[in-house]
Amino acid sequence: MSEIDWRKHGFAASQLGYLLKGAGYFHQAHRAVDDCHALLEVLDFVLPTTGAPALALLLEKPPASRRCESGQSRPLSNSRTR
Rank of each mutant, 00 (worst) to 15 (best):
K61N: 08
I4M: 06
P53E: 13
A38M: 10
T50N: 10
Q15W: 02
F45Q: 09
K21H: 06
Q72H: 05
V46H: 09
R7K: 15
S77M: 07
A54V: 11
L19E: 00
N78A: 06
H37F: 11
T81S: 11
E41F: 06
A29E: 01
A13V: 02
K8D: 13
L19S: 01
H30D: 08
A29S: 08
S79Y: 05
H30E: 04
L58C: 02
T50I: 04
S65K: 09
A52V: 04
L39A: 12
A13M: 02
A29D: 00
S77N: 08
A12V: 14
L20E: 01
V46M: 12
V33C: 05
C36G: 04
L47H: 13
M1D: 12
A13I: 00
P48I: 14
S77R: 12
L55F: 14
R66Q: 08
S2Y: 01
H30M: 00
A23L: 09
L20D: 00
T49H: 12
S2H: 05
L19R: 01
L19K: 00
A32F: 07
G71N: 03
A23W: 10
G10D: 09
L59C: 10
D5G: 05
A23H: 11
W6K: 03
S73I: 06
F45A: 10
L16H: 07
L57D: 01
T50M: 11
L55N: 00
F11D: 09
A52C: 12
A38R: 02
A52M: 12
A64E: 15
Q15L: 06
L59S: 13
G10Y: 13
L39V: 02
T49W: 02
Y25A: 02
L40G: 11
K61L: 08
C68G: 03
Q72R: 13
Y25Q: 04
S77I: 06
I4A: 04
A56W: 03
T49V: 11
G10T: 14
P53R: 15
V42M: 05
M1L: 09
P62L: 08
S70N: 04
P75W: 09
C68P: 00
L47F: 08
E3V: 15
Q15F: 04
E69D: 06
R80T: 03
L19A: 03
A12G: 00
L57P: 00
R7Y: 06
R7S: 08
E69T: 03
L55W: 12
A32G: 02
R67F: 12
F26L: 02
A56H: 12
Q15E: 10
M1K: 04
A52W: 02
A32W: 13
S65D: 14
H30K: 04
S77L: 08
R80P: 00
L39I: 06
H27Q: 03
A12Q: 12
L58Y: 09
N78Q: 11
S65Y: 00
D35C: 05
T49M: 10
N78I: 08
L58M: 11
E60F: 05
E3H: 07
L20M: 14
F45T: 15
S2F: 03
P53K: 15
C36Q: 15
L16S: 03
S77P: 00
V33F: 10
